[in-house]
Design a protein around this nucleic acid. Structure first.
Lengths: 192, 192
DNA sequence: TGTGTTCTTGACCAGATGGTCATAAATTTG
DNA sequence: CAAATTTATGACCATCTGGTCAAGAACACA
């Protein structure tokens, strides 16, 4: 080891993530990333590699923080219905707060980069699998059998991702609530 | 009128649409569009305007053809369950056929351009509204009241868009079928 | 045939793009 | 202090970007 880094890697990645979350991969220029991170291009390249690597790091950070927050909810205490309701409520809230148009970097990456970037695609597939498992575990606790839990999880993820699209599309916020309510109808209600 | 156009406008728009559908707005270069359309840049600009206008024309064409095909199904004969099942089956099929990764230009536009382009956002919102009405009409025929029809339609659109994201994400195809099956559970089954 | 109008062509442009690199600065180790 | 190693800096680059434009070609109309 010689000269130490002058920046907090986590903070830098967080700021890169925000740029990609806001603009997407292509529309985000190196200038944007330089401005947001506070680093200069040389340092950025030295620390991470090229633009694709920056994006991958940003996406992984998103999954490690934002998506993981959702998984933590699913793994926590409480009824499955309530946990899943919270997932959708988070979409509604971030839409209201105007957080990047209510969008989700994981969804954005799926549409913009999953096809063209193998590593991004792997990260996405792995994350979706983890999300699915967390939902399966949550509904399994309510006495749903494994096959049903798997297909229920697939369905909930679809609906969830769909609300993320609707949010960015500028659709009425009520559509997200409606989606949540119908999803909950398919979950066990009773006393278990 | 003086010198007539040497190209078929519909065919040109169709080829532009394919480029944007495949690559998205930013990643599609004018060179790509020139190559695909067979026109030269000057003609393209003369006929449509700038790149944003090309994209808007392509998106409108997508809605006028691909989305309209879905609406035609919904407005056609048959039970609502079957019609909506067909919507999801189309996603499965286009995924299998590798048609632009099973993606949907309307969804892609929602995530990539709805926020930054007012006209695109309007086109998207209008189209989603039309799609919603078509679904409402279809389920209303089955005796569902208007409020329920509206929220059911919102929910189905979410699930549908979600499968479009999952498809491009490279998620297992079974997840789309699972989503479809759970959606159908919320639709009237009986003899009406 | 001549004139006006529209369309086609491809050369051309300024600016932005992602990416590199030599040099200087800040450390650790001997 | 000196050598070695890593990081920071910003000038620099080839290439590509979306977009323009003047000149010529193809038509309608008179």
């Amino acid at each position: 080891m010689a000269r130490p880094r002058e920046f907090d890697e986590n903070k830098v990645i967080e700021s890169l993530m925000n740029v990609f979350w806001d603009k997407g991969y292509e529309a985000a220029t190196m200038q944007d990333l330089v401005r947001a991170s506070g680093l200069l291009k040389g340092s950025l390249y030295g620390a991470f590699g090229d633009k694709q690597a920056l994006y991958l790091a940003a996406l992984k950070h998103y999954n490690r923080t934002r998506i993981q927050a959702g998984i933590d909810i699913l793994n926590g205490e409480g009824r499955a219905r309530q946990k899943i309701a919270r997932l959708f409520d988070n979409v509604i809230e971030s839409t209201k707060r105007g957080l990047f148009g209510g969008g989700c970097l994981l969804c954005n990456a799926s549409l913009e980069k999953a096809v063209s970037d193998r590593q991004v695609k792997n990260e996405i597939k792995t994350t979706i699998r983890r999300l699915k498992v967390a939902i399966m575990d949550a509904v399994s606790m309510e006495g749903v059998n494994e096959d049903q839990a798997a297909s229920l999880a697939a369905f909930i993820i679809s609906a969830y991702f769909g609300t993320r699209v609707l949010a960015k599309a500028g659709a009425p916020a009520a559509m997200i609530g409606d989606t949540r309510d119908h999803c909950l109808q398919l979950l066990p209600r009773g006393q278990g």
